[in-house]
């Protein structure tokens, strides 16, 4: 009897013990586009005849000492709060190293190269779940100098600003630029982290906010979101599933055509029913499984883009 009670208690407490470890978002500091443009760290590329400008993080972090110091200081302050960040310079180096290694990797018997789809190559870039953009400008009035400093935390997948700190420091006659910059970073960091804390608190209470796209492979199967099942269109079937499985039924069906459903601000729970951490891939996989059985019997493929975005593509694998 005693053993049974202990076993039952252990079973009941097991999910509780497993909870409390939601997937941690990754943060990385990058220079803001405006800062890169003002300091000449943009590269141009030709996109079908149109010239586009993109920031050159590698060049910026390798040649600008002030940026290097600011990124290092922000990383240090965040690590002190128990939240180490992804390092931009190491990420850039590691991406280049991986690309070189992948090119040289072949199988011993057949000499085959590593398989990589065009999508894999596209996704292989410096990324984090929250990008912390930093920018500053030096203001000079006569002999006095001051710094206008901006720090913005952007959720990379929902494109929302989740934290920010901005302001101009006290003008100084004598302080050198690195000192003024260090003061600006130290001064603004607490305001920034308190907003980040509020964002994480909201995430714990209302679930993680993600974006989900449901699309259809153009494979000539004739499948569309207007296909009816027991009188309900496929759009309604998926919409109802979202309503049932999101936290407090919170989500937004922003676009719905016969070929694309775009769900925004989808609040997914932090934990699965077995107590393990939930992520966007798991959440969308649940939808994939739901659609794979009768009466729908639809084969589909899940593609994830970090913690916060996933595509479900119906029609084939």
């Amino acid at each position: 009897m005693k053993k049974t009670i202990i076993a039952m208690l252990a079973m009941a407490l097991l999910p509780l013990a497993m909870m409390g470890q939601a997937k941690k978002p990754t943060l990385m500091v990058v220079p803001a586009d405006t800062w890169c443009a003002a300091n000449g760290y943009m590269t141009d590329f030709n996109d079908q005849g149109k010239t586009n400008h993109i920031p050159d993080y590698e060049e910026a972090i390798q040649t600008n000492m002030d940026l290097y110091n600011v990124v290092t200081k922000i990383g240090e302050l965040m690590a002190e709060q128990g939240f180490p960040m992804k390092d931009l310079s190491q990420t850039v180096k590691s991406l280049r190293q991986s690309a070189a290694e992948d090119e040289m990797t072949t199988s011993r018997t057949g000499g085959s190269a590593l398989a990589e789809t065009p999508l894999d190559r596209l996704l292989n870039r410096a990324k984090a779940d929250i990008l912390v953009e930093v920018a500053w400008q030096v203001n000079t009035t006569g002999p006095k100098q001051s710094i206008t400093y901006t720090l913005r935390g952007l959720d990379a997948y929902t494109n929302t600003q989740v934290a920010a700190a901005q302001g101009t420091g006290k003008p100084s006659f004598s302080a050198e630029l690195p000192v003024l910059l260090e003061e600006a970073v130290i001064e603004k960091m607490d305001g920034f982290t308190s907003q980040l804390q509020a964002h994480f608190d909201d995430l714990m209470e209302n679930g993680r906010e993600v974006n989900i796209d449901v699309r259809i492979f153009d494979n000539g199967s004739g499948l569309s979101f207007e296909e009816e099942y027991d009188g309900d269109e496929l759009t309604d079937v998926i919409d109802n599933w979202m309503a049932e499985n999101t936290v407090n039924h919170r989500y937004n069906l922003a676009d719905a055509t016969d070929m694309v459903l775009h769900f925004e601000k989808v609040r997914i729970p932090l934990y699965r029913t077995n107590g393990r951490p939930m992520d966007t891939r798991q959440f969308v996989t649940e939808l994939r499984k739901y659609l794979s059985v009768a009466p729908y019997s639809i084969t589909s493929k899940v593609i994830t883009k970090g913690l916060g975005k996933a595509n479900l593509i119906l029609g084939e694998k």
Binding site: G20, A22, K23, Q81, G82, F83, T193, Q197, F200, D201
Partner: peptide
Amino acid sequence: RKDLVAADVIKGLNTGF
């Protein structure tokens, strides 16, 4: 801040992750 987080009086950035 560290000591208050350790005493569970306030939340830290890492709380829950």
